[in-house]
């Protein structure tokens, strides 16, 4: 092994770990919303990926109307998505919640199926509607950061945006955890997720709590969609692959666990990049799938859930 080979072997390893970790922040942000709805409402939201894309398109539209620095777009975007999430839950999804389904005398299996089907329908409608409005053109949020990187050495650099999003993911997930622990509505969310029936008996307005949880979920989708738009181009039909990634992260971290999302994202990111480095790029996604299946097989409760 020559010195140059050794040098590159080190660079590969360092790059794999670093890029993988920052990719993990990106994955974490994509999946928090899904983990939240699952944790609180046992709702498997199949339209989650499409909401990310909706948020990205909304960001582009807002920036088209008011050409300011891209980060300002979060100011209207995040509350907007919260409202959409709240209204969606109260108006539509609450009608097929575990509660509602049981009230209507349907079997528990149906309680599982109805939200799946309805969110699948929403997913189709969203992507088709986006295509009708925006056509299939690839869009992106133009910014000065997407091409910049922090160079650590001549051959080792770290993407500014992705590093930023890793930090953002950590901060947001921390904030969400605090919110759930410290605030009144946060405690209500926790109580409802532990046992919705008892929470309802204790006078909590389950419909409202679910609405807030859904709103928070889409709020995170707004951050994630903004992030996708900043760092990639997107098209109306890009949602489902993000959904699959989000599922993977949630499984690795443990269904419904927020901190698990963060760590799960990082584990998935590092696995993918390292597999890509050593077994060729075709192995990148395959290694990700196998990791998730492995976790499902060996630790269905997730790697980071006690």
């Amino acid at each position: 092994m020559t010195t140059e080979d050794f040098y590159w072997a080190l660079i590969d390893l360092a790059n794999g770990l670093m890029t993988g970790a920052t990719l993990g922040g990106y994955y974490a942000l994509i999946s928090v919303g899904l983990a939240l709805t699952f944790g609180v409402m046992k709702l498997v939201n199949l339209s989650h990926g499409d909401w990310l894309i909706v948020a990205a398109y909304l960001a582009v539209v807002i920036l088209g109307l008011y050409p300011v620095s891209p980060f300002w777009v979060l100011l209207p975007l995040v509350p907007m998505m919260f409202v959409i999430g709240y209204v969606l839950q109260r108006g539509l999804l609450n009608r097929v919640s575990t509660f509602a389904v049981e009230r209507r005398g349907l079997s528990p299996i149906m309680a599982m199926m109805l939200p799946l089907l309805i969110t699948f329908g929403i997913s189709t409608v969203l992507s088709q509607a986006l295509q009708l409005v925006f056509s299939t053109n690839a869009q992106t949020i133009r910014n000065d950061y997407s091409f910049s990187a922090i160079a650590l050495s001549q051959d080792l650099s770290i993407s500014t945006l992705r590093l930023g999003f890793l930090v953002l993911a950590a901060v947001l997930i921390g904030a969400l955890a605090l919110f759930i622990q410290r605030t009144h509505i946060g405690r209500a969310i926790r109580a409802t997720s532990d046992d919705a029936e008892i929470a309802a008996l204790m006078g909590m307005r389950t419909a409202h709590v679910y609405g807030v949880a859904s709103g928070l979920s889409l709020m995170f989708a707004a951050f994630a969609g903004f992030m996708i738009g900043m760092s990639r181009s997107f098209q109306p039909f890009d949602g489902p692959p993000y959904l699959l990634t989000a599922f993977g992260v949630v499984v690795i971290g443990g269904l419904g666990s927020l901190g698990g999302c963060f760590l799960g994202g990082i584990v998935l990111g590092i696995t993918q990049v390292l597999a890509g480095t050593y077994f060729g790029p075709a192995a990148q996604q395959l290694a990700g799938y196998l990791l998730i299946l492995l976790v499902l097989a060996a630790r269905p409760q997730g790697l980071f859930k006690r």
Partner: peptide, 18 residues
Amino acid sequence: QGQLVLGLMSIALMLLLP
């Protein structure tokens, strides 16, 4: 818009005729 119709149908069916 076949896909759109299918999506709307499945939402409507789930709400009205689970």
